[in-house]
Design a protein around this nucleic acid. Structure first.
Lengths: 339, 339
DNA sequence: TTGAAAGCGCTAACAG
DNA sequence: CTGTTAGCGCTTTCAA
């Protein structure tokens, strides 16, 4: 230790944590000595001593065959988190969940590698909910993004998917497109359920009876799942005179468009289609895809920010849970416009 | 500590590290006790004691205004790294470099938060090279991806960009497209220089004189930089009868195509264009974009794998530096095909 | 095959 | 304002 500056070990520590009253002179002396000795505090020891790692964990789901970062959704959220975490001087620890394995979140904390976590892509199934409840009971700080659990009061940063979906359907109806099919994501994601709710509400508000079974489809948010639905959607277009399709994300919309194209059915000519997420791709598609813009980046930033405030005790209403719902916005492009 | 199992602290440690001769019986006893007490080793203390963090660092460049993960390039590499690192039981620590600040890589190690690093997006400028040389001198393990330094012998996982570019030009020439413009990336990236070399070689091999100044442009790999070059490229198409453009990545190609479209100049009709990276977008563009596929994901995996082997001492030729160059592949699509 | 003891490099009371 | 003294929870000699 660099107490060859003529002072004690403790003083050095004080300097590096600028804590307690310190004489400017000794301070300088220590800093100088540290410089000379090319000293660098050992973060590991430091974390150990103060029982805080200085890391924020991000728990990522395991998606077979998907390059996680290469999805607009995760990329944007992570960029947002990363940015905010860096501002606060924390580091980001990525935790990849393993294939099936019950998510052992607790050990992540107990092993002291993170001070708090942002958890992505959790599903509303007993096992995963249980893991969260455990965390909650242990009083370990975490925040979910884009997922909530009915009847549970977790920290959540979400977006108004119900409202976004409502707008999409409203837009269809305004154009006289009343035969609408929905390709939703799995119902174990609260955001999928939100979308369904928005759709049904919009239809009801227009005096319609909601969504028939024959017009409801479910994919898993992958491009492939959209592609595989092409055949069935083609049927509804031909036989049930469906005019418009609302896909719960852009990737499925893209897959579907490709699939239908191969069947000779073209978007903008034979049917209209809207996606969701407003990913970059929406702009480049032919025709450009109407979509709902979701502030994923900002959601990541917000989740990180709130969590850090909570850690740093800066959040006044510490008792209050984080409950943030961010706005969405319909972006109309050619894929839903009659010529 | 769970030595309430009737044994000593040291024995518990031995069990958890399965080290030294151990009687199966005591082993079981400890494990049982641990279970009952719901004990979980404190990784922080453990790291501290054995001076290893169990983390692999990934150093990311600061790119103003860019959502880092939302670029095909970084996303894929990170996915690859993440995947491999998880397999080895390490965790990933993301380190965002700050705006300008001389990259202080050393402190990352000295602070003991990482055991080794994969460094992305470094440039061939004295300052950044210097930082790497320092690391090298200190004997700290790291690996670069997609960037090398002439005259330096760092660990590098790279791809054959010279070969890929060679193929693009060859493809143009085969089709009788001889007036070719290049939009390259900044020359402080070795991969940009590689591409230029490939282009020039291909032209020379065909008995041409190389690339005139008027046919060389430089962007910064962003979509915007491609877009901003539209005006100047339009000139070369009109006045210098340029027939084909080779952009050093897909993002610039996309930007350029958009820009030219706004000027009434259409890809596939008024000029031909090839990109590089073979990102997802290439497939969806109109017309679909010819591009060079680069195994970014595999490069990430490989870099992580090699580095981990090095750490674990599994690399036989520990003395040898890592020098891997992965293959690239031309993917021809409509944007370079005469009708 | 196991116990005892000595740290790892720092922070955190508690005195002075 | 600064020095002293204990640990943090584990690994690791060294003996037994």
């Amino acid at each position: 230790v660099a107490e060859r500056a003529g002072v004690s070990e403790a003083t050095v520590s004080r300097v590096f944590n600028n804590v307690a009253p310190l004489k400017e002179q000794t301070r300088k002396k220590v800093l100088l000595a540290a410089q000379e000795l090319n000293y660098q505090p050992n973060e590991l020891a430091r974390s150990f001593a103060k029982k805080r790692s200085g890391n924020i964990g991000v728990v990522l789901p395991f998606l077979p065959g998907v390059h996680l970062f290469s999805t607009y959704y995760f990329s944007e959220i992570l960029s947002g988190i990363g940015n905010k975490v860096r501002e606060h001087g924390y580091d980001l620890l990525l935790k990849y969940r393993s294939p099936d394995e019950k998510p052992d979140l607790i050990s992540l904390y107990r092993s002291r590698k993170v001070d708090a976590c942002i958890i992505l892509g959790m599903r509303d199934v007993p096992e995963e909910e249980g893991a969260l409840v455990e965390l909650e009971e242990e009083g370990l700080p975490f925040c979910l993004v884009n997922q909530s659990y009915p009847g549970r009061d977790f920290n959540v940063v979400d977006a108004d998917h119900s409202g976004g979906s409502f707008e999409v359907i409203g837009h269809f109806l305004e154009q006289g497109l009343t035969r609408i099919a929905l390709i939703n994501g799995p119902q174990h994601f609260s955001n999928s359920r939100d979308r369904l709710r928005g759709v049904v509400n919009a239809l009801r508000d227009a005096g319609m009876e909601g969504l028939g079974d024959s017009l409801y489809f479910e994919g898993n948010y992958s491009r492939k799942s959209g592609f595989l639905l092409a055949e069935r959607i083609a049927q509804t277009i031909r036989k049930e005179s469906v005019q418009a399709v609302f896909a719960a994300n852009d990737r499925m919309a893209i897959g579907l468009m490709q699939g239908l194209k191969e069947l000779g059915i073209l978007a903008g000519r034979d049917y209209f289609i809207a996606g969701y997420d407003d990913s970059d791709a929406a702009r480049w598609l032919e025709p450009p895809l109407t979509s709902v813009k979701v502030p994923f980046y900002e959601m990541g930033e917000t989740a990180a920010d709130q969590l850090l405030q909570l850690l740093e005790g800066a959040r006044e209403e510490a008792a209050e849970k984080i409950h943030i719902k961010m706005g969405t916005e319909l972006v109309v492009r050619a894929s839903t416009l009659q010529i």
